[in-house]
Amino acid sequence: MGGISSCFLLLIVLLIAADLAFTSLADFKNVLAKPEIRASIRLTLLSCTVSAILSVIVAIPLGYLLSRFRFPGRFLIDTLVDIPIVLPPLVLGLSLLILFHLPIGSSGWELETWLRDEVGFPVTYRWPAVVIAQFAVACAFAIRTMGVTFDQINPRAEDVARTLGCTRLQAFVQIALPQSGRGIIAALTIAWARALGEFGPILVFAGATRMRTEVLSTSVFLEMSVGDLNAAVAVSLLMVTIAIVVLVALRGLGARRWRLGTLTGDRTR
């Protein structure tokens, strides 16, 4: 068992080691000197953070609903949540593109046209498209994580709170939510990581315009497409570094909350 598990760990270590061996410090300096890569890093950090926060905001109530209640249509909702997980990334991007540009009715009303002309907030091939593409997948993972979190919280405490005068909403806010702190951080971590790795839907729905919709995953693609393999590998390693820093920071935050909670008797507040 241990041998099989170490094979996987060895594979990951070897992958990173091979990338490190292939590239050099000069390659790193070169890519970091490029303004388009710096813009890509900024957009990546911002878009991943926004899509992860949006994902958790949606995942908390939906995860709770799926965990606690049995209602007509629950199976359908449960299945719909899994669709972005199983859908090929390119198909998801294409579906988003079609959704925003599908003419509806005899007037040919289009969501994208309406957003651009009436709301003044164009989406397709701009930064909001990056966030939406990341959110569409990251949210599904966040919902699954929050569902498992609420499954592990004893619903009986919420029942007792209701006998003491809480509404269902108050029981959720005052009893279940404070217990789900570690689950929220886990959902945020998974959603952020998932958003960072998103490529296909972003390429189709947001394009890969340098300095506008380029994120690090598209930077790797763009550098490879112009034949600069060294830069592509350097950007890849940059992604690995950013991912490790953010994931360690989020996990550290979770552990700190747990330790503080243990000391004060309040794990999440």
Binding site: D159, V160, T163, Q179, G265, R267, R269
Partner: peptide
Amino acid sequence: YAPGDREIGYVPQDLALFPTYN
């Protein structure tokens, strides 16, 4: 009536204390 409107004190078998409250 909703559970909270029944003026009941309920102690379940597993106690169901609130983990984040003192």
